[in-house]
Design a binder for these strands. Structure first.
Length: 988
RNA sequence: GCCCCCGUGGCGAAAUGGUAUACGCAGCCGACUUAAAAUCGGCCGCUUCGGCUUGCGGGUUCGAGUCCCGCCGGGGGCACCA
């Protein structure tokens, strides 16, 4: 910036104000000028190791520590931003600017997550192509973010809809499709289980090393193409299957489990969701269940999010046990799953889910003496189970939730044999047993499980208690008889022995053992007896990956005339979306469970039907007309920041290792150094991204097992909203606060009428939106940034209160005035050495603020900077040596005004890469410290002492100071923590 | 129902187990001003002036906002997962 440009900040137009006062108008001028400077100078360009992005603001990457700070990228909706949205962006920007000043090479950029439902809906509403509206929205969002002064490397921005990006999303899909999970192989981080190319599996089938499931004894090359496809489909990590899925007629698409709420509604739109058997794409995320849990221990994430992921994956350790079921067509095997094999002696009946295959074998007549309540009034078991199954199918997820706790079920007419005791157990079917968890069959232990207990009570089944509380808990088993079942995992097993009289079993007794030991012993017995073994079960289901929507990535898959799927070669990528006559989804009456999904892409026949040569000569193929879910693009975007211009690789290895690799001298396990975003993605995006990353890690494309090293969840900015007496929202900005009423609560009025205050989100319909643009106009971006960063801890949610913003503005005004004369515009700092008091405060502030910045606590950093600035304000002349470090420390938070002041103080270049101030140890600490003398914890005296006073001296002074209170007696105990505390326990 | 997090002035909030209420807002007093705004300086938990105070009741400790147990209130996650 040239000298004559330097003092162009507009003088205040407001009459009566000094011409060079820092106000909103001046702030705007300063901010726009510095934003232009940063753009022109590439101030925030980060240097890559290789390639087109090697130059970063004249610096290179070599020998510099890297730091990658990232936000969860935004969804560019048509609504634009309100002040709540950028909190996380401001936090990462402050961190990025701070790390830059510590000399690190900082990668900080922003992309756009631009496929998905809302963009499509908005486009349908406005009658424009989603690409048009989406790109408009991105442009608007870019402008709003730029005006905030965020220090992005703009060369690295992209959107997930860019063909150059879609190409690699499809490429990753292809790698996942072309991979299988080998549970016996060792992955690159040394644990068991690893994705391998599908070609390895084919080679194993061909050579006969591995038996071909479902084709015992056959040779691979003798199988038909369709048979081969079907076999491989059972292994691929991305596969098509006909299975029960969540069908949402209101949205016209199927949804993943994670996108369905507990009430059985779609997360978007809140439409009913039905279970339907449909042929859809899934990803085998369940194969990674264990690693997704165990690797949580290697990353620095909030415990809350780790817990949510653990719960969602729901790993449970138990046993599968084989029961024999006597049917009219002979004995059948029934495998059950239980987490409590120690209670096998307490099982009194068995239950299978209504979809269970055993129900095909029910007898023609009820056994003699079948109680009326077991038959449901049906003449035969066959009629009963058929009717029950039909009723279960008709239930929506919501019905099931509503009924939870209320047990229904019917007897099957069959009996199952307990393999340990030989007992004959009546077999029921009931919908409280789910087909897709465990094995779809359970042994019921009403003495140990609330649900089984409820069922037993309803159908008059016996209850056996086999676990009693540990003696020290003082409980008595009889307390539980006939009441709630006893479910504790801490306990001693009783009534659980069989002797050797059972012909087919060994004797077994677990009486007197603690539950955990009993489980181990039973599992060992089951295994040697060949009737079961310890197993692991997951709540997590495979990830349903296809959607019947237009605005998403097409699958790189075509089908031949036989319906065999073929992966398109990488050279054909990206497969772009075709123009279709109508890109709106085919939606239905939300309650119409019988409707069928219809993909919009199927409307373009020219696109669907293609002729190409996939190695067997030119043939006709049909494209897959599904699109990928919105999550696909966000599963890997962090890697694309490393070089979005790279047309050769998804991400190049050298760049990956420099920015995200493990062991970069920072002791981290690898991945993005800091990832900031809302907690709402705890089990969606964050789980999916970890899964993809692990597949790519196993296959050797990336060198760290986890994508995000440190995760931080920023809180939500909340707001007040006001309703009138009819319950209508009124504009919050026009509401006036009155004095507190009789109940101590303030009253609120709008246009003279009384209104009620609510507390919650910021939203258009609540009429309480405040936009960043409002802030720029009234205060400027720096004050806006300062306010958001000072409101409270970043992780906490808190209410927005525009009235409080002025505090930050005043701070910046005082700082400005400390450097610039408000009437003349001249710089007025003193070149003299600061006095001792100022030096002490300055260096203590540097030490403290550095700690706060490291801990991501800008709110407390700001408080300390205000204290320092207030002190400088009280001086006759502000020393340059004190105000310059203050400016540098404030720069990450309020960068524009700091750049301006730095420039006016005579520095030619931006301060973005200036060194962060280092405290001079000679001035850190206090001259004297207030030592507190406590008697029984109450403060009784205060002493001004030297910080390095010795304990004996301090004790003597303390005892003297409170001598009259001790009444001449020698204290029982004196604790001295020099130099701060002397705590005295007086004699009785 | 199970699990997790959070309760501090009128408000947003500070406090490695060690002087509770830093910093900001609002409010009050004063200076400057014909006046107002802005600015600058001071005050700002309750109190019967003994003390009492971090939602309530216990506990551990010389000492608890902070650690432990039990309640109450608010928020979030999961929910027939055997």
């Amino acid at each position: 910036m040239s000298d004559n440009e330097k003092n162009t900040a507009a003088p205040a137009v407001d009459s009566g104000e000094p011409a060079f006062r820092y106000n909103a108008a001046m702030a705007q001028g300063i901010e726009e000028r510095w934003q232009q400077y940063w753009d022109e100078h590439g101030t925030f360009w980060a240097a890559n190791v290789n390639g087109d992005l090697k130059d970063g603001e004249g610096r290179n990457a070599e020998g510099r520590k890297s730091y990658f700070a990232m936000d969860m990228f935004p969804y560019p909706s048509g609504k634009g931003l309100h002040v709540g949205h950028p909190l996380g962006y401001l936090a990462t920007d402050v961190v990025s600017r701070y790390h830059r000043m510590k000399g690190e090479n900082v990668l900080h950029a922003m992309g756009y997550d631009a496929f998905g439902l809302p963009a499509e809906q908005y486009a349908v509403q406005t009658g424009q192509h989603p690409r048009v509206t989406t790109e408009q929205n991105i442009a608007n969002m870019r402008r709003q973010l730029h005006r905030m002064g965020l220090s992005f490397d703009d060369r690295r921005s992209f959107a997930t809809i860019d063909p150059g990006y879609v190409r690699w999303t499809q490429w990753i899909f292809s790698r996942i499709y072309d991979a299988w999970y080998d549970p016996e192989a060792t992955n690159p981080s040394g644990s068991k289980g690893c994705a391998r190319p599908i070609a390895d599996l084919v080679a194993e089938f061909e050579s006969g090393i591995r038996a071909i499931p479902g084709h015992d004894g056959k040779v691979w090359n003798e199988l038909t193409a369709v048979e081969q496809t079907d076999v491989l489909n059972e292994f691929r990590l991305a596969y098509i299957s006909k299975s029960p899925v969540n069908w949402c007629p209101g949205l016209g698409t199927v949804l993943a489990n994670e996108e369905v709420t507990a009430e059985g509604k779609s997360e978007r739109g809140n439409f009913p969701v039905f279970q339907r058997e449909l042929r859809q794409w899934s990803m085998r995320i369940t194969a990674y269940g264990h690693r997704l849990i165990s690797d949580l221990d290697t990353i620095d994430w909030p415990e809350k999010v780790k817990l949510m992921q653990r719960n969602w994956i729901g790993e449970s350790h138990g046993a599968s046990v084989h029961f024999t079921v006597e049917t009219p067509s002979g004995d059948q095997d029934m495998e059950i799953y239980t987490t409590r094999p120690d209670t096998l002696f307490g099982t009194t009946f068995a239950v299978v889910s209504p979809e269970h295959h055993l129900l095909a074998c029910v007898p023609d007549a009820w056994p003699a003496n079948t109680p009326e309540s077991w038959t449901g009034g049906y003449a035969t078991p066959k009629e009963a189970v058929t009717a029950y199954r039909r009723a279960a199918e008709a239930k929506t997820a919501k019905d099931r939730v509503d009924e939870a706790g209320e047990k229904t079920g019917l007897f099957t007419g069959l009996y199952a044999i307990n393999p340990i005791t030989g007992a004959e157990l009546p077999l029921f079917t009931a919908d409280y047993v789910l087909m897709d968890y465990g094995t779809g069959a359970i042994m019921a232990v009403p003495g140990g499980d609330q649900r089984d207990y409820d069922f037993a009570v309803k159908y008059g089944l016996p209850v056996i208690y086999t676990v009693q509380p540990l003696p020290e808990s003082g409980d008595d088993l009889s307390d539980y008889e006939g009441k709630a079942p006893f479910v504790s995992h801490d306990g001693i097993v009783i009534n659980s022995s069989v002797d050797a009289t059972r012909a087919d079993g060994q004797p077994l007794s677990i009486d007197g053992l603690r539950v955990d030991d009993a489980i181990a012993k039973v599992n060992a017995w089951l295994e040697q007896a060949g009737v079961g073994k310890g197993t692991v079960s997951y709540r997590l289901r495979d990830w349903l990956f296809s959607r019947q929507r237009y605005w998403g990535e097409p699958f790189p898959i075509v089908y031949d005339e036989d319906g065999v799927a073929h992966l398109l070669p990488d050279e054909q990528l990206p497969i772009n979306l075709p123009d279709v006559p109508d890109y709106s989804p085919k939606t239905f009456d939300p309650e119409d469970a019988e409707s069928n999904p219809e993909a919009p892409l199927s409307r373009n026949e020219e696109w669907v039907k293609v002729t190409m040569d996939l190695g067997e000569g030119p043939k006709t193929y049909y494209r897959d007309t599904n699109t990928m879910p919105n999550w696909a693009g966000s599963c890997w975007y962090y890697m694309r920041y490393l070089d979005p211009t790279d047309t050769e690789h998804m991400v190049e290895k050298d760049e990956y290792d420099y920015w995200m690799g493990p062991d970069r001298g920072n002791g981290r396990s690898g991945g993005v150094d800091l990832y900031v975003g809302g907690v709402e993605h705890a089990v969606l995006h964050l789980l999916y991204a970890r899964f993809w990353h692990k597949v790519l890690f196993d296959l050797g494309y990336v060198d760290s097992a986890e994508p995000f090293h440190k995760l931080f969840n920023q809180g939500m900015i909340q707001a007040y909203a006001y309703t009138d007496d009819r319950g209508q929202y009124v504009p919050a900005a026009e509401v006036e606060e009155g004095p507190a009423g009789a109940d101590g609560e303030p009253t609120f009025t709008w246009n003279g009428q009384h209104v009620n205050r609510e507390f919650g989100k910021m939203g258009k319909s609540l009429k309480n939106i405040i936009t960043p643009d409002d802030m720029y106009e009234n205060y400027g971006a720096d004050t806006f940034r300062l306010y958001e960063m000072s409101m409270g801890p970043l992780a906490e949610s808190r209410p927005w209160n525009t009235r409080n913003v002025v505090g930050g503005m005043r701070f910046l005004q005082r700082l400005w005035r400390n450097v610039v004369d408000e009437t003349t515009g001249e710089v007025r700092v003193s070149e003299d050495e600061p006095d001792l008091k100022t030096l002490k405060l300055l260096n203590n502030t540097i030490a403290d603020v550095t700690v706060e910045m490291e801990g991501m606590r800008p709110n407390t950093a700001i408080a300390k900077l205000i204290v320092l600035n207030n002190h400088l304000t009280s001086l006759d002349a502000v020393p340059r040596a004190a105000v310059e470090p203050l400016i540098l420390m404030l720069a990450p938070i309020a960068p524009h005004i700091c750049e301006e002041l730095w420039n006016r103080l005579g520095h030619a270049a931006s301060l973005a890469h200036e060194s962060w101030p280092v405290a001079d140890e000679r001035y850190v600490g206090q001259d004297t410290i207030t030592a507190v003398v406590q008697i029984k914890g109450k403060v009784r005296a205060k002493l001004e002492v030297s910080p390095d006073i010795d304990s004996a001296e301090l004790e003597r002074m303390a005892l003297e100071a409170v001598a009259d209170r001790l009444g001449g007696k020698t204290p029982r105990k004196v604790i001295v923590k020099a130099p701060k505390i002397v705590s005295i326990v007086p004699a009785e």
